[in-house]
């Protein structure tokens, strides 16, 4: 029996690092001086590690802004890659502090799973992509088709709902990751591939012959994607929500990464409050006066982040569309800073 100890050995190497007991997430993050951010294991344009191992992308930029606001350094982040299945457990169990992982805001996730959505950083909708030579021009013609769909996501449920209401049948081909979807779809394992329209466009852009594929006109769902935090910690939810709002407001008032220093002395009282020149909004949030300034300076305002990671001209090549500011006919809208 002595050998059994050889096995128990590593179990005792455990790092039982008892965290600061329930000081609230904001206190925890400040205490450990690092933000734990749950990201997609790999989602073109939204979250991926570059060749030096630094995480990049549209979703990642949210975490960077929060880290800059709370800890003063956008690199004080521990990135925790999560899959569609592991993401919520990771958040519930405290393995991560915030989850900006293209997660759709739904009633059950908000109410039943006990999460709080701190905003919508991307308004999306689910669409279908098919090969052109299939001769299909509408999703209603997909009766009996095999359809690639990511498991454990709302797309799976939307797909079932849509086909039920249309009274037609389909054969699901379950996949785990967008990369797997490319393989299955290009290899002909499924007739159609369904996921958020933005992602369809992104993936199509990487195919050897993008023109051979079309995205069908039907958008079958609303997919408001946003950063998620645990329910019941409103202080922390406020920090994430208002950091995000600061990015949107900054775009509205023309505050950019470049001009942020001049804008601090702007005449506009809203901008002065936002950047901490006037008032004490930061203190109310449990942060210092420069919190929003640092968040914006990290990677720019909402528009700058969008343009740099997924906007027109990048490989993802996505139009602002619904994600334009409200003053430009979109849905991005920040409540006032006062």
């Amino acid at each position: 029996m002595t050998k059994i100890k050889a096995f128990i050995g590593p179990a005792v190497f455990l790092t039982f690092a008892a965290g600061a007991a329930t000081a609230g997430t904001l206190g925890d993050v400040k205490g450990r001086d690092v933000l734990k951010c749950g990201v997609n294991t790999g989602f073109a344009g939204f979250a991926y590690p570059d060749s030096s191992g630094r995480w990049q992308g549209f979703d990642v930029a949210i975490c960077r802004a929060v880290a800059a606001a709370v800890l003063g350094d956008q690199d004080k982040i521990e990135f925790v890659p999560t899959t569609g299945e592991t993401r919520f457990t990771a958040l519930t169990s405290g393995e991560i502090d915030v989850l900006p992982r293209n997660t759709t805001w739904t009633f059950t996730r908000d109410v039943d799973l006990k999460f709080t959505f701190a905003g919508v950083n991307y308004y999306d909708g689910q669409g279908f992509m098919v090969r052109k030579d299939l001769g299909v021009t509408s999703a209603k013609e997909l009766d009996g088709a095999t359809i690639c769909v990511q498991t454990g996501t709302t797309t799976e449920l939307n797909l079932a709902d849509y086909f039920k209401t249309q009274g037609i049948s389909y054969q699901p081909v379950p996949i785990q990751t967008p990369a797997e979807a490319d393989q299955q779809f290009l290899g002909g394992a499924c007739d159609a591939y369904t996921t958020d329209a933005s992602q369809l466009a992104t993936q199509r852009g990487t195919y050897p012959n993008p023109a051979d594929y079309i995205i069908l006109p039907e958008i079958i769902s609303k997919e408001p994607l946003g950063p998620v935090v645990r329910q019941g910690d409103d202080e922390w939810a406020d920090v994430v929500r208002w950091t995000y709002n600061a990015l949107v407001a900054a775009e509205e008032y023309g505050v950019t990464k470049k001009n942020i220093d001049e804008m601090s002395s702007s005449e506009n009282p809203e901008v002065r409050r936002l950047l901490g020149t006037e008032g004490d909004l930061g203190r109310m949030l449990g942060l210092d006066a420069d919190w929003a300034k640092r968040a914006i300076a990290a990677n720019g305002n909402y528009g700058e982040i969008f343009a740099e990671t997924i906007g027109v001209g990048t490989p993802a090549n996505i139009e602002r569309g619904l994600n334009a500011l409200w003053i430009n006919g979109g849905l991005q809208y920040s409540p006032p800073f006062r």
Binding site: G42, A44, D50, T83, T86, T177, P178, A179, Q183, T202
Partner: peptide
């Protein structure tokens, strides 16, 4: 499966980089 980036997991994340998206 549980989102540890072993070689297979890394392939997924490398393929998400817009520079290498589409390589298999």
């Amino acid at each position: 499966i549980i989102a540890l980036l072993d070689p297979i997991g890394l392939v997924t994340s490398i393929r998400a980089d817009s520079n290498w998206n589409g390589i298999v």
